[in-house]
Nucleic acid binder design. Structure first.
Lengths: 152, 152
DNA sequence: CTTGCTCCTACAGTGACTGTAGGATGCACA
DNA sequence: TGTGCATCCTACAGTCACTGTAGGAGCAAG
């Protein structure tokens, strides 16, 4: 009763994989060098040959990076997804922590936005000598970001 | 009619300057190496000696960094502030551009927050094999950040 | 056989610092 | 005058997640 849809198991060159996932060739090689992607098979000429499993894994990595997860977190998520019987509490914790980080960055950036908006509005478009923006930078007596700067 | 308050013109060691501005010693030396701070005088033993002018300049740099300005922008702001007769249009442009950058980053992070919140809420706290978070990372059919990822 | 695209390795560069090693200086106190 | 210790010095490697470059080799079509 085996179905007739023979899986093509199509091999992909690194360029094909790059196009299929939207990850640059150099980045794929970089992911291999840091162990995010396994070392693929090679042709006789030494070129990398990827499978569908590689494509799925790289998609996972890319999506996690798009969501801002750090490489170490992605490494852990990949390990976790290889153990489907375990509790997903750790997955939840990683995602929740990342969400908290994102929210903190938003909060800091909103303080920055407030301060910068005030600065820009104060500008009278005169000469540098009378510039309120530079005054603010020089004096900085009342800055919203005084305790705990942003540092991106 | 000269006033009696003789300016002390107090010299500062690098550690004093660090305490006065909240910038680490290593960072002060780094700013000197990239030309944000001028090379100070030295004692006979080779230690850096700073003046009040240095302190003011370093405060300016620190405040600008706290507000997220990049080093190149700060370099330009410093140059501008040395020419008080010029128009401050360029200062305004730098600050406005930076504000726009901050707002764009906020917008991107808010998309991220939406997506991450959805992911975390979908988690059923079961086993990894049923994890919705990992599903989202693997499939990623409907991601808000599909066009233009964050990359911090 | 040649053209031109794809791919290879190895390494340096990015930004804004931080950390470390190994040694010199300078000042207070005995 | 000695000694102990905080402060300071230079030089360089490490951080993060890539990106860019140099110099060459593989491979398919014309």
């Amino acid at each position: 009763m085996s179905v007739k849809t023979a899986k093509p198991a199509k091999d992909l060159a690194i360029g094909d994989l790059a196009r299929a996932t939207g990850v640059k060739i150099t980045t794929i090689r970089f992911y291999e060098s840091i162990g995010l992607m396994p070392e693929p098979a090679r042709t006789e000429g030494g070129r990398r040959v990827y499978s569908e499993a590689h494509r799925r894994r790289l998609n996972f990595v890319r999506h996690a990076r798009d969501l801002g997860f750090e490489v170490d977190a992605i490494r852990e998520l990949l390990t976790l997804s290889d153990h489907p019987e375990q509790s997903c509490a750790r997955v939840d914790a990683l995602a929740s922590q990342h969400l908290a980080d994102v929210e903190e960055r938003i909060a800091r950036l909103e303080l920055l936005r407030t301060e910068l908006t005030r600065m820009v509005k104060a500008c009278r478009h005169g000469r540098v000598g009378d510039c309120r923006i530079l005054d603010t930078l020089a004096d900085h007596a009342h800055c919203a970001t005084e305790h705990g700067a942003v540092r991106d």
